[in-house]
Simulated scan of single mutants.
Amino acid sequence: MAVDPVLEADLVSYVDDRLAPLRRIEVEAHLATRPDEAARIMADLRLRDELRLALVAPEAPGSRELATLARRLQSGLGRRRRLAVLRRCAAVGVFVALGWLAHEGTGPLAVRQSIASSAPPPFVGDALAAHQTSLVRSTMESQVETPRYDPAEIRAATAITMPEAPRGWRVRDVQVFPSPFGPSVEIALADRAGASHSLFGIRPGGFEVTKPQTTVSGPLAAAFWQQGPVAYALVGPAAERDALGDAAERLARSLY
């Protein structure tokens, strides 16, 4: 089925939470393949949230002046968003004001810096659990593995775009798991040496664009990243943490 082209008006409506769920998925799929445009929309989403926070937190130090500015900018922003160029100008103005507040250590941006240094996102735990489940399945004769891997079919059924398996790796099994925001996908893989790995994809319920990072949990390591509405994790032995990070970089690039 043909998808209507995504226009600037769709992007504005996406930021304003005024799109139907199906159209939101179409816009997110559009942004997932356009990192520059996705970064622009992410900045708008952040500014929208910071405006809302400034307007509902009058007790914060320095927020009275910021709230006055935010109300004035928010009022004009609704009109300016009809024109993309003016919308960018309004966004820059809010960013400067909120950046000044963050510099004082009391603004929303200061909170985001602490979030950046927190533990891995919840979907990494889901990926590790799915990997361990695939290891259990591989030892059970009654559990038939499904090595047929069709990324197009997966995307049509789950709205998750999965990359091709790394070159030289073999697909052992493909499974769909439930998650809070729809189905997730786990692909059990064997690398060139036969070691067990898995590639996990999930819609975590938020829109981000992040570069691959790695973490270790006991005997396992995971390289995780997010491209638009879909998050990914490549899981394997902890001793291969660096190699997993390199492979995740290649997989992330292959999705653009």
Rank of each mutant, 00 (worst) to 15 (best):
A97I: 01
A129M: 02
G218Y: 07
L234E: 01
E28Y: 02
P121Q: 00
V56P: 06
V209K: 03
H30Y: 15
P5A: 01
A20N: 03
E186I: 10
I187D: 00
P21V: 04
R172C: 11
D44F: 11
V174M: 07
G99R: 03
S184A: 15
F177A: 01
A91N: 14
F224L: 02
I41N: 09
S13R: 14
K211P: 08
S63C: 07
A193R: 15
P212T: 11
A57K: 14
L251R: 04
E8A: 13
E8P: 14
Q227H: 01
P163Y: 03
A165F: 07
R170H: 09
S117R: 14
D173A: 02
A2S: 13
T210P: 04
A190V: 02
G182W: 06
V176P: 04
P58D: 03
D44K: 08
P163W: 08
V15R: 08
E28H: 10
G228M: 08
S179A: 07
A248Q: 08
A156W: 07
H103A: 14
S142D: 10
R24I: 02
Q113L: 14
A156S: 09
A102F: 10
A38S: 15
P61F: 03
A116N: 12
V12W: 04
L101E: 02
R52M: 04
F200Y: 15
A233M: 13
L199P: 11
